[in-house]
Design a protein around this nucleic acid. Structure first.
Lengths: 184, 184
DNA sequence: CCTTTATGGTATCGACTCGATACTGTTAGG
DNA sequence: CCTAACAGTATCGAGTCGATACCATAAAGG
C-alpha cells in the first residue's frame, strides 16, 4: 500500500498536468518551451531536451515540429557539428510564457507560510535528487553550480567552462545546462 | 518568472508521469486503477472518477473501456439508478497494483529524514487544499473525516452517512469518497 | 400525467503523446 | 578508409484528451 504522501504527489502531478492544456498547447509543449527559456546556449538542442524530458528522441522531434509550426520555436543548423540542431524561442514563444499555466501552482506555493516555502523547496530538492539518482538521470542544474565552472576571465568573458572549453557570459552561467554536475 | 519550487514540482510531475508507462498501462489508466482501489462503494463510478481526474467524461469513458478490455476492471449496472454504472477492480486489477510504478516515488519519500516526511506531507496537504480551492475541485478525503459521517450504529452497521442515508462498514469509512466534505 | 430539463454514459473526430523501429546524414576511431 | 557511434527524422499503432453530439433514464413542474 502506498503512503498518503505518494498519493498526494500523484494527485498534484495530475492537477499540474491538467492545467497544462491551455493556450492551445499540450503539457509536453509547455515543458519544452519552459526548458528552452531556462537552458543556456549549449543545452538548447533536441538531444538535451530529450534527456531533460526523459522521453524518446522520436517523440521530442515531433513535439518540436509542432512548436515550430506554431511559430514558437526556431531551428538553426549548428555551426561546428552539421548533425546537430540549435533551438531558440521566437519572440512569440517568449511572450507566450507570460501565460504559463504553472503560474497557478506558483500562486499556491506563495500562499504557504514564508518559513515553510524554503523548507518545502529544500525537501523537494532532496526528493528530486534521490529520484534522479535512482534512474540515472541528469540534474540540469545551474551552470554556475557545476564542477566545470571556472571564475577565471577568458577571452574577455567573465567565466569559463572547463568541460566545453568555452567562455561563459553571466547569463549563460545562471541558466541550466545539460552537462551540469554538482561541484564537490 | 517562476520560482525554483514551481520548476521542481513541474519536473517531479514529469518523472512521475514517465514512470507511469509500465506494465503496458498508461498514466491515466494507473490513476484510475489506484482510484478504484481507494474509493468506497459510493464513489466507484465513471462520474466520480471523472471528477477525481478532472477530465471530461468522454475521455474517462474511453480509459475505462481500455481497462475493461485488459480485464482489470468490471462494470455492473447500478441497482437503483439504471443510468449509472458501478465499477470494481477484478482480482487481476488488484494484483497488478502490486507493480505500481509509484512505488519508486514511495521509496524516494521514505529516503527522506523521518522528521521531514511528516512535515513534507503536511505542507503538501496545504498546497493541495489551496490548488483545489482555486479551481473548485472536490477533496476526495477519507469518508470518516466527512461532516456527514455519523458514529451511530445503524442497521447493525458500525457507522452511517447522513448525506446518502446509508449504513457504512469500517472499510467504507476508511476509503475515500466523492462526496466527502471536511468536518467543521 | 406528460413534457421539459438535468444527469450518467457512450460514440466519434482531430490533434497530439508516446514507445518502438527503421532510416538518413555526419563525425570520430581504429 | 571503413566502421562504429551519434544527432535527428519518419512512420506506425495504441492511447490521451477536449469538443461535440448523442442516447438513455430520472427528476421537476405545470
Amino acid at each position: 500500500m502506498l503512503s498518503s504522501t505518494a498519493h498526494l504527489l500523484e494527485r498534484l502531478a495530475r492537477l499540474v498536468h491538467n492545467d497544462a492544456y491551455s493556450s492551445g498547447l499540450k503539457p509536453t509543449q509547455w515543458e519544452a518551451l519552459r526548458y528552452l527559456a531556462r537552458a543556456n546556449r549549449f543545452s538548447r538542442s533536441p538531444g538535451a531536451l530529450t534527456a531533460y524530458l526523459g522521453m524518446t528522441k522520436g517523440t521530442v522531434s515531433q513535439t518540436l515540429q509542432a512548436l515550430e509550426r506554431k511559430g514558437l520555436v526556431e531551428k538553426r543548423a549548428a555551426a561546428n557539428d552539421r548533425r546537430s540542431v540549435k533551438l531558440d524561442l521566437t519572440t512569440a514563444g517568449e511572450h507566450l510564457l507570460a501565460d504559463d499555466p504553472l503560474g497557478d501552482l506558483e500562486a499556491s506555493v506563495s500562499a504557504l507560510p514564508k518559513e515553510d516555502q524554503k523548507l518545502f523547496g529544500a525537501m523537494l530538492e532532496g526528493l528530486m535528487k534521490n529520484m534522479l539518482h535512482r534512474r540515472g538521470g541528469k540534474a540540469f542544474g545551474a551552470c554556475k553550480t557545476c564542477r566545470h565552472f571556472r571564475g577565471d576571465k577568458n577571452q574577455g568573458a567573465p567565466f569559463f567552462c572547463s568541460l566545453l572549453s568555452e567562455p561563459l557570459s553571466t547569463s549563460d552561467s545562471e541558466m541550466i545546462c545539460a552537462e551540469q554536475e554538482a561541484a564537490a
